[in-house]
Nucleic acid binder design. Structure first.
Lengths: 98, 98
DNA sequence: CAAATATACCTAAGAATTTTAGGTATCCAA
DNA sequence: TTGGATACCTAAAATTCTTAGGTATATTTG
């Protein structure tokens, strides 16, 4: 979520779920029950700020990264890559002989 | 855990934690609070079977994959790689121009 | 040799996160 | 006009992990 917000500049919740689905070729589904509580937590932590916009009669809540959020994005991305690296080390086939 | 058991043939709990630590250069720590309940669950599901061995006065509980466990290992490994792939698609930097 | 560290098993409360399963309402296409 | 997409949200239950124990033997080290 932080990564997408960093790249797109501003996004609303539903839009994030669609991006995740599209980018992953439908392999990852970010459910709304996971999405919204997390966005609210990010806001409470000061990593994102919001702006309400009315589109027709419907409310849309745009999220943008704060400076703190951009830093968090970088460190979280690095942290995730380290996790992947460590997992690949563990899951790398053990070469028995040759 | 399934992957390590598949490769090593048989392992005991404490040994698994040490392998994880060594293979990952200390970056991953599998705590005992996560380890043992999971081993017990795998056993209940029939993915592993156990054999108690006394080493001196101390008990050691060896775990081995069942046939079902070997299949589960393969599918879980594939599943994890798919997860990584999907995540990399999502986290891959969006090329703005060139 | 005593004390600390390592080996070796385990559990349970609490915390964190996700799934599931709702609820409300507008917009658009068949 | 009705079903699916858009758009927000929450709360109970399930799942999983961390934390923080408990017990005991073996080994290393000051």
């Amino acid at each position: 979520m932080l990564k997408l917000l960093d790249e797109e500049g501003r996004m609303y919740g539903y839009e994030i779920t669609q991006h995740v689905k599209t980018l992953s070729d439908g392999k990852m589904i970010l459910t709304e029950g996971a999405l919204y509580p997390t966005l609210h937590k990010l806001e409470a932590e000061g990593l994102v700020k919001t702006k309400q916009v009315m589109v027709g009669k419907r409310m849309r809540k745009y999220y943008t990264l704060t400076t703190k959020g951009k830093k968090a994005n970088q460190s979280k991305l690095a942290e995730f890559q380290e996790f992947i690296n460590a997992m690949q080390l563990i899951l790398k086939p053990k070469t028995t002989s040759s």
